[in-house]
């Protein structure tokens, strides 16, 4: 039974990586937005199963993302994904205490911190706070949009 679950989750994990690779980029003027599917997956898993195991899954997913997309900042995504998993995993702990609005706020704030820290490190211009905020804000909106759609239509609002 346990093996069956492990295989199922491994398939899901592989599917997430493939979806992330194939997911189209959204062009908004000069900005390019690419919703972070791995972050959505980590959020769902952290809410459903708590944060202990998901912290490690998030670390390895982040590391994979690092190995594909980073050159000199290897470890950045694994750091941020781990933090995000810890933050969103707190929804599972406070499920009966926090209402839907609070839970959604926790997710949005965690997403924003994740993207803000990422772009703060990646963007090489100290005078471009507006650009960093623009990217962080838009990435948060699109990524949360995908989470919201999945929660609404696939999970029947069981997540938040």
């Amino acid at each position: 039974m346990k093996n069956h679950k492990i295989i199922l989750h491994s398939i899901f994990l592989l599917a997430v990586i493939i979806i992330q690779a194939y997911f189209p980029i959204i062009y908004l003027g000069s900005l390019t937005i690419s919703p972070d599917i791995t972050l959505v997956y980590i959020s769902i898993m952290a809410i459903l199963y708590g944060r202990f195991n998901i912290i490690f899954i998030a670390f390895f997913l982040g590391l994979f993302q690092d190995l594909i997309s980073q050159v000199t900042l290897l470890g950045l995504f694994s750091f941020l994904k781990t933090l995000a998993a810890y933050g969103i995993g707190s929804i599972n702990l406070h499920d009966s205490v926090w209402n839907r609005k609070v839970q959604s706020s926790v997710i949005i704030v965690t997403y924003f911190i994740h993207f803000f820290l990422y772009f703060y490190v990646v963007i090489n211009d100290s005078a471009s706070w507006i650009v960093i905020l623009q990217y962080s804000f838009l990435q948060t909106i699109f990524t949360f949009g995908i989470f919201w759609l999945l929660n609404r239509f696939i999970f029947g609002r069981r997540l938040t």
Binding site: I55, F56, L63, L73, L76, L83
Partner: peptide, 13 residues
């Protein structure tokens, strides 16, 4: 778990 993961990430970084 968080501490270990963050530490490894920072070592990698």
């Amino acid at each position: 778990a968080l501490g270990i993961s963050l530490l490894v990430s920072l070592i990698l970084l």
